[in-house]
Simulated scan of single mutants.
Amino acid sequence: MFSAFTRLSLVTRIIIAIILGVLVAVVAPGVAPYLSLLGDLFIKALKSVAPILVFVLVLSSIANFKVGSSNAYIKPIMLMYALGMFFAALSAVIASIFFPSTLILDVAAENLVPPGSLAEILKNLLLSFVANPVTAISEANFIGILAWAVALGIAFRHASDTTKSFLSDAAEAVNKVIRLVINFAPIGIFGLVAVTFADSGLKTLVSYAHLLAVLIGTMFFVALVINPMMVAFMTRSNPFPLVFQCLRESGITAFFTRSSAANIPVNLDLAKRLGVPESTASVAIPLGAAINMAGASVTITVLTLATVNTLGISVDFTTMLILSVVATVSSCGASGVAGGSLLLIPVACGLFGISSDIAMQVVAIGMVISVLQDSTETALNSSTDVLFTAAVDRGLR
């Protein structure tokens, strides 16, 4: 039975884990506290691997980025990618204002010292940027980790091919460790769901349903409103035929594969049929699969603001704009594995002085709802790759 279970897809295993966790909470609530160790181990594993993940993946991504491309279309495509992610994060901010979400967290209130003003937030942000890199990794200071990864990545851009190859191999090794940890997600989620439902009952289900509705609703808004507006501006024509074709032929496939990288061949074929030159598509599509993560921007922003609401931290709109920028930059470093964007939530949480312990609880909640959230996120990410590539090609021609 165990062998048959491990052969199932991760989505199927998570669904089974959620159902079993709810059943245990309803039928035998007295057993649930003993299962808390499973959830604690899973959160601890995430907490341990996340700092290394952010540091190595962002460093390798920047160091191996190909500079000096002669293709005139790549720069505007990259600009579309960047603007798309920022507008997606901004849409998530607005959605969180009108439909605020809260989470059920195990918070030690006496250990929480939220920032009192924008000046304090900016001060903490600047101090985090200049933290010692070893200390930043050991203390899970994700802002400092991100700053050092970007700085070293830029420094390594002109390193030898051997060095860049080593960095790529290191990133792949970290990805394999992440895949191993996430393969244990169903077990950890089983323990988390059992304990949470036994303690809070249907209140948890309502919280998760509301959070999922805000996430998916925002992603649909980006796909059907923000992206068409950007495409219309670029092509000076009706954007919806192209938008719907990309969603139908790329988004649906990506929804079920849950991998932008696995969807690259689909996008290359679609780009070819849309008339995009191979010299453009062969660079822009793989580049988009690596760094164009509008769905991840939405996920990081919504879950971070839900955490902020839960902890009662007051946030003004200027801080939310800063969060949008942080979410945009963080999204570029999202791992290619299922649920990879969730592991970057601590980066955004660090903007508000939220501890790594609390941030990892939020990551675990994200894993619970990832059955639908991650599939929708990947569909938005991957379909946007080919959409913006085709839009820039049509606009410039």
Rank of each mutant, 00 (worst) to 15 (best):
D269T: 14
P241S: 01
F99R: 04
I104C: 14
A147I: 12
V113M: 13
N263M: 04
L112V: 13
T253P: 08
L323V: 00
A170Q: 03
I137C: 03
I154P: 15
R273D: 01
A284R: 09
M85W: 04
S260M: 11
A159R: 01
V49R: 02
A296P: 05
S138Y: 14
V214H: 02
L167R: 01
E377Q: 10
G395L: 01
A32S: 09
S341C: 02
M78L: 11
A294F: 08
L23V: 13
R179S: 05
T304A: 02
I145C: 00
P186Q: 00
N175E: 11
Q245G: 09
I285W: 12
C332E: 14
I121E: 14
M367E: 12
L323Y: 00
I322E: 15
S237H: 02
N238K: 08
A338C: 07
F197V: 06
V193T: 08
L192T: 08
K47Y: 10
L192M: 08
F244R: 14
N309A: 11
T280V: 13
N263E: 07
I264M: 10
M229D: 13
A198N: 13
L59M: 00
A194N: 09
P133C: 04
V392P: 12
L126Q: 14
I19E: 03
K203R: 14
L351C: 08
S200T: 14
L311A: 09
S259E: 01
F129R: 08
S279Q: 07
V26A: 04
V49W: 03
T12V: 15
W148Y: 00
F42V: 10
A198V: 13
K47E: 10
F244K: 12
N132A: 02
G201P: 07
L35K: 00
V26M: 00
A82W: 03
M78G: 15
D40E: 01
F166T: 12
T328S: 03
T162Y: 05
S335C: 15
I104G: 12
L38D: 06
A364D: 03
L118F: 15
A32V: 10
A348P: 01
V222E: 09
I226N: 12
M80Y: 06
V54F: 07
T378V: 08
V363I: 05
A327K: 00
L211W: 10
I252S: 11
F166P: 13
F255V: 02
I97D: 07
P133W: 10
L90W: 09
I137D: 02
V150K: 01
T196Y: 03
L224P: 11
T384M: 11
A72K: 13
D169I: 00
S260R: 06
L212E: 09
Y73R: 15
V315A: 04
L224Y: 13
K272D: 05
R236L: 11
M1I: 13
